[in-house]
Amino acid sequence: MTALSVRDIGISFGGVKAVDSVSFDVEEGSIFSIIGPNGAGKTTLFNLISGVYLPKAGTVSLFGEDVTGVAPNRLVARGLSRTFQNLQIFFRMTVAENVMVGRHLKEARGIVPHLLSLPSVVRQNRDSRTEAIRLLDRIGLAGRADDLAANLPYGELKRLEIARALATEPKILLLDEPAAGCNPKETEDIERLIEAIAADGVTVVLVEHDMRLVMRISNRLHVLDYGKTLASGTAEDVRTNPEVIKAYLGTHGAEEAARARR
């Protein structure tokens, strides 16, 4: 089944077409990567899919249902969540609380029980925390659950965003440069994490510049340049596409991408 379908989507900022008539389908349970040079429109595309921006043209569908223009918080209820290229952490909250916010739609949200801290709310807080710790354990941060998020190093915050998104129990997860700024060890951890997430049946849409990582784990790739689709296909198709090599990979990048296979 097609988990995510994007059709002729586009948006411009002050006359600049940041995303221009882009279309693709993402198969359920697959890892689908979007690559391209800086400024190609990858993050903007994520903003369009996740409802942060309203597209000027085109449609977005999740599991066959048109969700174009649906607010981000409503898309979460339909199984979509995401992370951000530039960290969007709740810095004044603890690490565990950051993940607990991801449980929001799974929690009873009546305000009066919250004001009175009824036993049901206390129980639910405990359950949300247990789930948060389980997810933190998965990204290796359970030991820092009660630290203020502001006190974590960059690489750990990147993973914290993934745990927070996972807390929503997504069916589709958009990851915007999860390995950016991470050291090789952290990058390897993130690669394994993404594979494990996909193995659980979650569809992953990935934006990432680390070509070794991308080429190793993606089922399909989509290449953007100046907001337009440059190429689309398997890692092999993309790696050997002369247009892609010229615009993005370069000869060095293509070699690196090729090495990823071995």
């Binding site: 898309l75 969540s81 952490i89 709740f90 004044r92 909250m93 609380e97 998104a165 807390a167 929503t168």
Partner: peptide, 14 residues
């Protein structure tokens, strides 16, 4: 508290 720190992040978790 979440929307205080990042409205967009709060929205994309529901």
């Amino acid at each position: 508290r979440a929307l205080h720190d990042s409205e967009v992040a709060a929205r994309v978790v529901g």
